[in-house]
Structures are given as C-alpha cells and as structure tokens.
Simulated scan of single mutants.
Amino acid sequence: MNEAQQNTQDLAAKGALVTGSSRGIGAETARLLAARGAGVVVNYRQKAPRANKVVAGIEEAGGRAVAVGADITTEEGRQAMINAAVQSFGSLDVLVLNASGGMESDLGEDYALRLNRDAQVALLEQASEIMPSGSQVVFVTSHQAHFIDDVPTMDLYVPVAKSKRAGEVALRERIPMLEKRGIRFTVVSGDMIEGTITATLLNRAEPGAIEARRDAAGRLYSVEEFAAEVAAVVGQDLPTGHTEYVGGAEDFLTAARKNQSRIAGN
C-alpha cells in the first residue's frame, strides 16, 4: 500500500465486505481498509472468537467493523453479509472476494467448485444489485490457480486451482453487467504466501514445496505484505478486469506464453 493511502481516510463513509476475514490475508485486509475509514464486515464461517478479535482490534484503532458469521455457499449467508454492510455502514462499496478453500476432506467432492466458483459468482450477483456506481469488487487468487490452464501445479492443489480458475473465469463473464452498473472488477493474483494454511498443507503433503517455490520466485510474500497489495488496489483507477500480479509471476507468465504459442502452432 502506498504512503498516500496509509495517511488518508479515502474510504471514509464507505462500507466494505471482506469474505473469509477472521484470520490471515482477509483479516489483515480488513484492518487496512478500516484504517482508511471504511466500515468493514468481517466474515467468518465457524470461528467467532477470532472474528471478534479482529473487530476489537479495528475498533481499538478507531475504526468501524462488525463480525458476521455466514457461509458464503448459502443464499442466507451471503444475504446476511450484504445486509450487515448496509445496516451497519449505510452501503456496500467494496467487496473483497477473499474466502477460498477446497482442501477440506469432509465437505463433499464438489465443495471446491461450490465455494470457489458458484459461491463467488452468487455473492457478486447478489451484492451488485445494491452496490452503488463507483463501487469495486476485488477477487483474490493465486498464480497457481490463475495460470493452471498453462502451468502445472502440485497434485494436492489441482482441484482447488481449477475451481478458483473456474471462479475467476465466471466472474469475468459478469464484467459487462458490472460495467453497466458502474462497478469495477479487479483480480489480485499472488504466489504462495508464507504462513498461510494452504502453504502449510501443501508443504506437509510435498515436503520442500515452499522452499522450492521460494527459490523459483526469489522470495515469498508474508500475509501482511500480500494483504497490503490487496488493499492497495482498492480505490485505484484501474481498468475493469485488470489483474495485479504480486510476487514471482514472471516464470508463470513466461511458461503461459510458451504454452499458448505451442497451442497456436499446432
């Protein structure tokens, strides 16, 4: 996040919803948006104490926030978050689609697709009905998912990567609708992030995975560093559909271009 954003209240009188924000990247993004004046809905699925701690921290710093327990794969859960933003802060102007998953083993074989594609699209469509012109939607993804059609990833992560890519594609198909409503859409794609649950699980399944990716990228971002990049795109005058690549994207972009050239040549 640039210094100008850190020292201004450019999001004052705005309402924001950050999905999956009781911990990690989502929690830090919520804190950063609140520091810029936004009232923030902190969303959690099960861990109320964690979400309440995030809210307490924001309020202690002089910000505004409310915790909402909601499962974004349900219509009631999505509507509860939207209603909380409007009722608590007057409007929903910033929607950060941060929640993701799919490595859970007890939620059904189709859970990754339901969460990473269907729920994201459904929340976008429900929220866009009440978001005013000038609002912004930010979809948070990974290089491993964004480039999955061109660049292989770790076996354990393939279902998640494919479902997140499907989600991004489906969200981009809604851009004409968003443009008619004056709502901007931005994608933030990051490399593996140090300290996240996903990185930990992948490294546990494939020992050395984090170290190998760190060597290939030069370095990996921390949760705080990546969240700062997510928050930084909020309020920027970026073209709708812009993808902000954060850390280590060069090898992915090069591999993707080579693969596309190979396909075009066949």
Rank of each mutant, 00 (worst) to 15 (best):
Asp71Phe: 14
Val94Thr: 12
Ser88Arg: 12
Arg45Pro: 07
Lys53Tyr: 02
Gln79Pro: 01
Ala51Arg: 13
Gly57Tyr: 02
Val96Phe: 05
Gly102Gln: 05
Glu76Lys: 11
Ala85Cys: 14
Glu75Gly: 12
Val94Pro: 07
Ala80Cys: 13
Leu95Arg: 00
Ile58Tyr: 01
Asn43Met: 12
Gly63Pro: 12
Leu95Val: 00
Asn83Leu: 08
Thr73Val: 06
Ala84Met: 00
Ala85Gly: 13
Gly57Asp: 05
Asp71Met: 12
Gly63Glu: 08
Asn52Val: 11
Glu59Gly: 00
Arg45Glu: 09
Gly69Arg: 04
Ala56Trp: 03
Val96His: 07
Val96Gln: 05
Ala85Glu: 11
Asn83Pro: 01
Val86Ser: 08
Ala70Phe: 07
Ile82Met: 03
Gly69Asp: 05
Ala56Glu: 13
Glu76Met: 09
Asn98Ser: 06
Glu59Gln: 03
Glu75Asn: 10
Thr73Gln: 04
Glu75Pro: 10
Arg64Thr: 14
Arg78Pro: 06
Ala48Lys: 11
Ala56Arg: 05
Ala99Glu: 11
Ala85His: 14
Ser100Glu: 10
Leu97Phe: 01
Val54Leu: 07
Glu60Thr: 15
Leu92Cys: 09
Asn98Thr: 06
Arg78Glu: 04
Glu104Pro: 07
Val96Thr: 04
Asn43Tyr: 10
Glu104Ala: 12
Val55Phe: 06
Leu95Ala: 02
Gln87Ile: 07
Thr74Pro: 08
Gly57Glu: 04
Glu76Arg: 11
Leu97Thr: 02
Ala99Asp: 10
Lys47Pro: 00
Ser105Glu: 15
Glu60Met: 13
Ser91His: 15
Val66Ser: 01
Asn83Gln: 15
Glu104Thr: 10
Gly102Arg: 05
Asn52Leu: 15
Leu95Trp: 02
Ala84Tyr: 01
Asn83Lys: 15
Ile82His: 03
Gly102Cys: 05
Asn43Cys: 13
Gly62Ser: 10
Tyr44Glu: 03
Asp106Thr: 15
Asn52Ser: 15
Leu97Ala: 01
Ser88Gln: 11
Gln79Tyr: 00
Arg64Trp: 09
Pro49Arg: 08
Gln79Leu: 04
Gly90Val: 09
Gly63Lys: 08
Ser100Gly: 15
Asn52His: 15
Val96Arg: 02
Ala80Met: 10
Val96Tyr: 04
Asn52Pro: 10
Gly102Asn: 06
Asn83Gly: 11
Thr73Leu: 03
Ala65Val: 03
Ala99Asn: 08
Val86Tyr: 06
Arg50Gly: 03
Ser88His: 14
Ile82Arg: 04
Ala65Ile: 02
Leu97Ile: 00
Ala56Val: 06
Ser105Asn: 13
Ala51Ile: 10
Thr74Leu: 09
Val55Cys: 05
Arg45Ser: 13
Val94Phe: 07
Ala51Val: 14
Ala80Ile: 07
Asp93Glu: 14
Glu75Trp: 04
Tyr44Cys: 01
Phe89Gln: 08
Thr74Gly: 06
Glu59Met: 03
Ala85Lys: 07
Glu60Ile: 10
Met81Asp: 05
Ala65Tyr: 00
Met103Arg: 10
